[in-house]
Simulated scan of single mutants.
Amino acid sequence: YNARRRQLAEVVPNPAHRALADLAARWQGRLTLVTQNVDDLHDRAHADVPTGPGFSLIHMHGELLKARCTASGTVCGWPGDLTPAEPSPFHPAGVLRPHIVWFGEIPLEMPRIEAALAQADLFLSIGTSGAVYPAAGFVRAARAAGARTVEINLEPTKGRGVFDDGVYGPAGETLPAFLADL
């Protein structure tokens, strides 16, 4: 995780990240962006664009630039390297670990995600295999709520038949055009 954290300084948000930020700036209702990525590219793309009160960004698998106390659960910003025995400033019995959801752990903010899916009018699945649960089940939850569902990906996934529509090609090209037409 230390190497990945350092690599964040070398990357910038791409046109797909910026298109989502532009959408959040002009959207008049609720817009929930759930990312499985642990980088800060969505945060940086949205930092320069004012978003409405209905916008929320959920990092369901955690964030590279944060650490969590193993004893108290307190989360804090942590831009530097983290050792396995890093003492926690929040609890004498705790150590800090990356604020990352590891295999076997429950993704973060699931109640908020489920509530957003239950109220969705439109569900976009962008750049994912759609094969890993619980995220792979989000499209079905959105469909059950009556949402229009769209897969935006390099190519159709094995779950393509669950979506109402599909847009295929590089997200940096296809997503800005799709969102411009919304």
Rank of each mutant, 00 (worst) to 15 (best):
I100L: 15
P79S: 15
P176E: 00
A145Q: 01
T157D: 02
E10V: 07
W102N: 13
G146C: 07
G77R: 15
L124Q: 04
F90I: 03
A24L: 04
R30E: 15
M110N: 06
T35N: 10
G80W: 12
R143A: 09
G161I: 08
C69P: 08
I126H: 01
T149W: 03
P50G: 02
P50R: 13
V139E: 00
V132Q: 08
R160E: 12
F103T: 14
A144I: 02
P53Y: 05
W27L: 02
A135Y: 07
E173N: 07
A71V: 01
M60C: 14
E63T: 12
R30K: 15
E151Q: 11
R68H: 10
T70G: 02
P176I: 00
G29L: 15
V167L: 15
P170N: 05
A141L: 10
E155I: 07
R18N: 01
D181S: 14
S88M: 03
A145L: 00
A118W: 05
G146P: 04
L64C: 08
L41H: 08
R44C: 06
R97Y: 07
R140L: 06
T35I: 09
G159L: 09
G54L: 12
T51C: 12
T149R: 04
P50K: 06
L117F: 03
G52K: 06
R44Q: 12
D43P: 04
V162G: 02
M60L: 05
A147W: 01
E10D: 13
A71D: 04
A85S: 10
A21Y: 05
A25P: 00
F163V: 11
A115E: 15
D22W: 01
Y1T: 10
G62F: 10
P156V: 09
L154M: 12
A9V: 09
G127K: 03
D43W: 11
T83R: 11
W102Q: 14
D121C: 10
G94A: 05
G80F: 10
E155Y: 02
E151W: 02
V95N: 01
I126E: 06
A16S: 11
F178Q: 06
A135R: 07
A118P: 08
S129W: 03
N14C: 04
L31Q: 09
E105A: 12
G80H: 14
N14S: 01
H99G: 05
G169E: 14
P84Q: 08
G127V: 07
A116N: 06
E86K: 01
E109N: 14
F178H: 13
R44I: 07
A116M: 07
G169W: 10
R26H: 04
T83A: 13
A3W: 00
D39Q: 11
V38C: 15
H59D: 11
G137F: 09
L108C: 12
V132P: 03
M60I: 13
R26P: 00
I106C: 08
